[in-house]
Design a protein around this nucleic acid. Structure first.
Lengths: 386, 386
DNA sequence: CTGTGGGCAACGTGCCGACAA
DNA sequence: TTGTCGGCACGTTGCCCACAG
């Protein structure tokens, strides 16, 4: 069988794509105004090539640190080999950059979480050849068609469609002592075809029309590191800058790829969101904020931190950019992998901390197990504000 | 296990790399003078991205169609996933381009074919799970250590090392009626680990030190079409041109990747070879030539053709380039996939055509079925020369 | 409620020579 | 000389439940 790009294939289901991309990812609507950061784009490439942009890359003095663009087109994709999701965006630089008024209302950011959806990180048992897949009870009841529990044992055939419109067949059975939901026949071929390992996640969606969809999300560790057998990382970095520079100079369209699970941060931001963050709030050193992160279980959680500095990440090449202009510290000790620098639009500043901050007591007690972040937060706030 | 680049690994065995690259491929020696063709580099990217360089790519008026460079460094690589071979070359543009004298003697092009070597295209039986690998008799006797034929059956354990210095163990046995050489135990794990299919080829080498090496060469059909989830093909094309342009302007090093089995033609040519071809021979329309191609069985074969035209492939963007400046017709009817355009240094001109040109009658009658190329060529020659 | 492991049947893998091509 | 096949043994896969955590 010859490998083909999915370029020519049918359109990818956006709901499934978003579910695979994760709860934090959103793609601005086509036709809207966005801000494109070459600097952030470069970071994405640096991650996939494992090579930072070197100093000997030429300067593009005419390329500003951000381009106001209109988002001409978006195509969602999934890698044929790995199912890795990515988006192709066609941008058109706006004629008079930075002079845009804040005309655009904050349009609905189409953050439609799928109606019925679940995501499970695979265990060793799930991926071993010894058995099938153990379905969490609530998940099975929520997204799978109901079983006829008068049968012994209750069972049915499930068909789920992946991002490439390929159908996968599973035997769904409710058995064992105590009773539990399992996927048996068909599960192992899926695991080996997708090359899933313990730690990877699988997700199921039942869409509006009752169609069952499934996708995968690989563990962070084994992200596909690009085989750079095509282009040197230098040429890639240069290509990004030269393409953006040329497009800006001629006001012509250019194409970029956004890889939500590779990229450290989104680098195509809705203009309204950008302007609201940059002009709407006055941030100062010492200011407290919250920021949303994806949890292991694919839900979201807010972490708290303090702004410790404000300034350009790269004052030489990208002076006066707002990209990651905030140096921050995190409250929690598990902050090892959280960025030391964030951008204004990523955070929720706490301007009136004492009205919002103290969570209800119920929540507090729930979180009491082994987490010392919250308590320290309150202490810290007292110190810095009184 | 986390995937790592082989950048940090030990140096790749050049003999094995060349064997995997194929009989036609050669890499100029480090330190030598070479000619780099951005146009050819672009063709390689076009193949791997399946996208031609579009017209709206900016012009680089200061970038000549070829750069005389000194080859500063070469690193041989093999893709961790696919074993696809490629070379990283660091080039430094020479100060006064094109003014180089033909000082460099035609240094030995280190076309050392491995001493003991064989390559076999895998059959359905070789790749099926039902059995092992049938070793061609002459191959086994030439490259494998001799068996003790007094044993019943004669057998031994073979260890062969691949491009990543990974060892593979095989049971080599001589049995069956009639007797034949087989690889049994260990073969199937190799096939599944490398994901070999019928039509792919495997090759074994015994090097100077008696060490057994093995490599693979995948069928042309299933070449890895790059998942372009990193960079748009436009940006890649731009990156190539901008990187070369910048390097030429500043006489600084730049890095390119040469992918011998993807690229339609080599685009880094030894300067001596280039100059000899361009200045050494006067080519004319109607001239006959021979050109070397790789056969299915990984040996070489010469095909004959006639020059039908001379001129720039892309007169607008790459005027006065010598890249594929010859339009050619091929004698044989199987010429479907052979290029219609070649470069001067790829051919062997037959300066005394009428001594060699008229093919023997046997060949002519063979070719009689349905192909009108040869006859027309002869007509064309008469017209243009008489 | 769900992850792991023992038990066991069914199936696939893989070694063998017998045939041709 | 070597590609494919039927035969057969043995190892793995995969379905079942019993346990804990």
């Amino acid at each position: 069988a010859s490998a083909t790009m999915d370029q020519g294939e049918k359109k990818i289901n956006p709901e499934l794509w978003l579910a695979c991309a994760g709860p934090l990812v959103s793609v601005p609507p086509v036709g809207s105004q966005v801000v494109y950061f070459p600097q952030g784009h470069t970071e994405q490439v640096a991650v996939s090539t494992q090579k930072e942009a070197d100093a000997h890359i030429p300067n593009y003095p005419n390329l500003p640190p951000r381009l106001i663009c209109s988002l001409d087109n978006v195509t969602l994709h999934a890698d044929i080999e790995t199912d890795e999701v990515y988006a192709q965006m066609v941008l058109i630089p706006t004629q008079d950059p930075e002079k845009e008024t804040m005309m655009l209302p904050d349009v609905s950011e189409q953050k439609k979480q799928p109606t019925e959806y679940f995501c499970k990180t695979l265990t060793a048992s799930d991926t071993s050849t010894h058995g099938g897949f153990s379905i969490p009870r609530r998940a099975a009841e929520k997204v799978f068609p109901p079983l006829d529990y008068t049968q012994t044992p209750p069972a049915q055939e499930l068909v789920a469609r992946d991002l490439h419109d390929q159908d996968w067949h599973f035997r769904h059975i409710y058995r064992g002592q105590p009773r539990r939901h399992l996927l048996t026949t068909g599960w192992s071929v899926f695991v080996s075809a997708k090359r899933l390992l313990a730690g990877d996640a699988v997700l199921f969606i039942r869409d509006d029309k009752g169609q069952l969809l499934l996708g995968i999300r690989r563990a962070n560790r084994q992200q596909t590191i690009m085989p750079s057998s095509v282009l040197s990382s230098d040429s890639m970095h240069i290509g990004i800058l030269a393409a953006a520079s040329h497009a800006a100079a001629t006001s012509s369209r250019f194409t970029i790829f956004y890889n939500p699970r590779q990229s450290p941060s989104e680098f195509v931001i809705p203009l309204a969101k950008y302007q609201k963050a940059v002009f709407g709030t006055q941030v100062t050193v010492g200011m407290r904020f919250r920021m949303v992160f994806e949890t292991e279980e694919s839900s979201v959680r807010r972490y708290m931190g303090t702004i410790t500095g404000i300034g350009d990440l790269d004052p030489v090449r990208w002076a006066n950019s707002h990209w990651r202009s905030l140096k921050v510290g995190w409250d929690e000790s598990t902050a090892g992998e959280r960025q030391r620098r964030v951008s204004l639009w990523e955070i929720e500043p706490l301007t009136t901390p004492f009205l919002i901050c103290p969570p209800p007591l119920a929540l507090r007690s729930k979180r009491a197990r082994g987490m010392h972040g919250e308590e320290e937060d309150v202490e810290f706030m007292k110190k810095s504000h009184l």
